[in-house]
Design a binder for these strands. Structure first.
Lengths: 330, 330
DNA sequence: TTGTATGCGTTATCAA
DNA sequence: TTGATAACGCATACAA
């Protein structure tokens, strides 16, 4: 690997001049500059980022922290959009996998911090608040991509708007008996948000709410399928808004085995745009995360923080409208 | 951020001594060492990797290059295993997304190279041979995770073994009329490998080969579904080995709509363990990539290259036996 | 057992 | 328009 020194030696000039020529800062005689550029090319010169960062104290490196085993099919589109924006602005993005959060989070944080990143982006994980506290202590800008209940700066989806647009879609299609398939007594924050959005919409629309209760949050698919197999065909809704895609899919399979047709008899919309919904029969309409927007906007916010812009009155966090992905189940 | 200098100043000693104490190399009086460690902790000292790398000319950084829009659900398990092995050995792994390969590959390579990585790992992309050539020129160790036809060092799946184990499974279950659902005149290397593996196994087993031809490689699902809808029920096979999961799924849907039962009437196995096959009805048996092994072993090989071990007689590349993932379609 | 001095490749100050 | 020189934080040869 060649360095400025090598180029200086060959061109019979000084390191400083080579630096000036290569970085286009300061005056260099035209002919000399051309020669320096040529030699640099011949030597296949590439700047040493280590040295540059050490000297300037700016790494232009963003660590993107992601817990292992995440739903990559859902997260990576966000990462791609985030990285694209960052690269446009001259930053490199490095994905850091968080493995054993319980036992080695603080060691992992050291590894992240000792690279002197310019900023940190995070996906949600269990001890994220610990990490955020540390980042604040270090005065290191951060942003979280996607959901988390904690009081931290995040760019996520506006779930209420998602529910509303789905319900409106049902109404536009003339459906009246619109049910909510999900937990009727949600413990988690986002479960409550969804249920409340449903209830308040139904109230405003003067429609009677109907809840198909899924008691737990685990194994949605099988529970929903059982519900589909047992629910009375007489009181069947004509529109179903499901808590998740897997619940929707299970419910659909359960009823299909009894001869109910989707979407002719029942129109159904899931939540979260899982891959399974793409290839189900019929393909499932779903409320999808606005992945690109989340990626791009979280990058913009992180850049604003890095550049030292002051926090907006409304705070850094943003809730973006979701995408209603209409396929063939509605 | 504090440095060795800061610690030296506080403890009234020299940078050299602090370095010795922190890195456990050389003699430091026990009491002094304890004090230094304490001060380091108080200051929340973290080594500056930029400076360390600059000095030692070793970055312990692996760039993992991945084309954008890849099948992350399939690739990330490989990445996780790769990263785990690398981290055990003290290396950091950074994911580099390749966006516009046609136009900006050489610029991207510069970005990768100017970080002075210790090694490079690659997923397959269209101009991978260009990149590999450059890496060889720079004397930078690399390994490729997964398939590629090019003559480059890779760790992939032994497709022939996969086909064989699937066909053996059919035989064990007493199936005799085993068909291959795929292109009968494959243009691509791996298409040929699969077809030939099927044909030679059938020959050896003295079974009559039967090919359900999918003429193109695109839109497998719909073409296979059409085949399923039109194929004569009289000459139906009792076992089907499909070129891909989506072909298997399409074929299954086409025949299910005509009342054929899986796996009672036909046993079917796909290829590549797509997410769709997990939630199909019935869930699809499939030949899966040995992701963990590919990740771990490619890390081991790259480490061997980095450490300057000499190439084995058989070359660096490896073909690993696949995993026959038995679900409910067989 | 500890300290001094040098260099890695870059940028930046200041003088020529 | 150009060039010494210092400094970033660390590792190491060598001296004490």
């Amino acid at each position: 690997m060649s360095s400025l020194k090598d180029i200086a030696a060959i061109t019979g000039t000084s390191v400083r001049t080579v630096s000036r020529a290569l970085n286009d800062n300061g005056y260099v005689k035209a002919a000399l500059k051309i020669e320096i550029l040529k030699v640099a090319k011949d030597l296949d010169y590439r700047i040493n980022l280590m040295a540059q960062s050490l000297r300037t104290k700016k790494s232009f490196l963003i660590e993107l922290v992601c817990p292992i085993g995440a739903d990559y099919a859902r997260n990576m589109p966000k990462v791609e959009a985030f990285e694209e924006k960052m690269r446009e602005e001259g930053y490199r993005v490095s994905l850091f996998l968080l493995r054993d959060i319980e036992n080695s989070l603080s060691k992992d944080m050291d590894v992240i911090l000792c690279q002197n990143p310019s900023g940190i982006a995070l996906f949600h994980f269990s001890k994220i608040d610990l990490m955020v506290k540390k980042l604040n202590d270090c005065n290191l800008p951060y942003i979280t991509l996607g959901h988390t209940e904690k009081k931290i700066d995040k760019v996520g989806m506006d779930r209420k708007k998602g529910i509303q647009s789905a319900l409106k879609h049902f109404q536009d299609k003339g459906r009246k008996r619109i049910a909510y398939l999900g937990n009727e007594k949600p413990k988690h924050y986002y479960g409550k948000v969804r249920l409340n959005a449903y209830l308040s919409y139904m109230k405003k629309a003067k429609l009677k709410p109907l809840i198909l209760n899924i008691p737990t949050t685990k194994d949605n698919f099988n529970i929903a399928r059982t519900i589909g197999k047992k629910v009375s065909l007489k009181t069947l809704p004509d529109g179903v808004l499901a808590y998740s895609d897997s619940a929707a899919l299970g419910f659909m399979q359960g009823l299909q085995s009894r001869g109910v047709k989707f979407p002719e008899d029942i129109s159904i919309i899931g939540f979260n745009a899982s891959q399974a919904g793409e290839v189900s029969n019929p393909p499932l309409s779903t409320i999808a995360h606005p992945n690109e927007a989340i990626g791009t906007i979280s990058a913009e916010i992180l850049l604003a923080k890095i550049k030292g812009q002051k926090e907006p009155k409304a705070g850094w966090s943003r809730e973006l409208p979701p995408v209603l992905l209409l396929r063939e189940s509605t």
